[in-house]
Amino acid sequence: MDTDARKLLLEKMLYARRFEERCFEAYMEREIGGFLHLYVGQEACVFGVMAAARAGEDAVITGYRDHVHGLAVGMDSKLMMAELFGKESGCCHGRGGSMHLFDLQKQFYGGYAIVGAPFALAIGLAKAIQLQKRDQIAICILGDAACNQGTFHESLNMAALWQLPVLFVCENNLYGIGTRIDRSTAVTELIERAKGCGVTGAQADGQDIEAVFEASKVAVEHVRSGQGPYFLELKTYRFRGHSMSDSNVYRDKSEEEQWAGRDPIQILKNRMLESQEITEEEYKSLDKEILDTIENEVVAFARQAPSPDVEDLEKYVLCDTDGDSEQGVNTNG
C-alpha cells in the first residue's frame, strides 16, 4: 500500500473514531436517542474491506453497529448525524435511527437491528445481482454472535448451492453482548462453520487494516470473478461496551488492556511514523481538523435540522394509501 492510500485510510479511521466519540457525548446529552452501539476499536475491519471493494457501488448490508459502515461506503456524515438526532434531514428522515442507516445512492441497504437477519436479505440481493447479470457483488458484514442464528446456516447453504456473488464478512469481536464466544459457540473458529456450509474463506487480523485489505482483495476477487461466495473472518475487539447501557463487567481488565494495545489507528499511525510517512505534528493537525469539522459542520447541521412532522406519522406505510407519487420499481442509484 502506498503512502497516499495509507494516509487516506488513517484519516478515514480517525474520522470514524472522532465521529463516534462525538455520538457518545451527544447520547449522554440526550441529543441522540434510540440506542447507540459504537464500533470503536473495530474500524480497520470495514475500511479495509471497502478499500478492496467498490465502495458506493457494491451492495452492502450489515447489523446494528453500522455507523462506520455508513462512512465506509461514502455516506454523508451530516445526514448520518441528523439521523442519529432523529431529524427529518437524516438519511432515513429520522425514522431509522442509529441501527438503520441507509443510502440507496451508495448501495447501502442498511443496518438492521435484528441479529443475523441480514444474512437472508443478502441472499436476495446477491440472487438479484446474479439473475440480472449485474457487475456488482453483495457484501454482508455481521458479527460473531450473528453466526449462531439459524439464518447464518440457511443463508450460507443457499449461497453455496446457488454460487452467489456474496462476500460474508464476520467481524469476530469475541462477544455477543456480554457472553464470550467460547461460552456461546461450540466451534469458535467461525471459518470452520462456513466451510461446513460449502463456503470457502480465510481469517485475518482485524486490527491491522493492511492485513484486512490484503485478505479482502483476495476475497473480493474470488466473488467478483464468479467463483461463488466467500467468508472472511476478521479477529477484532470492541473497545467499549455493547451499547450505552452496558456495565461491561464481563471482560477481564487484562484482556481489555491487551486489546487496547492493538488499536487499529495506532497500529497504522505507528507504522507510518516509523517509515516517516507522517509526522506527529501532521497527525495532530489532521485530528484537529477532523474534530472541527465534526463539531462545526456535522453536529451543527444535525442540531439545526427540523424534527419530523407529526402530520407525516402515518405516511409510507402502504403505497396506495398515502398519496406517494413514486410508485413503480425501485431505483438502483
Partner: peptide, 11 residues
C-alpha cells in the same frame, strides 16, 4: 428474507 432482498432490486 431472500424474497425481500430480491424485491428491493426491482424483482
Amino acid at each position: 428474507g431472500t424474497a425481500v432482498g430480491m424485491a428491493t432490486q426491482g424483482l
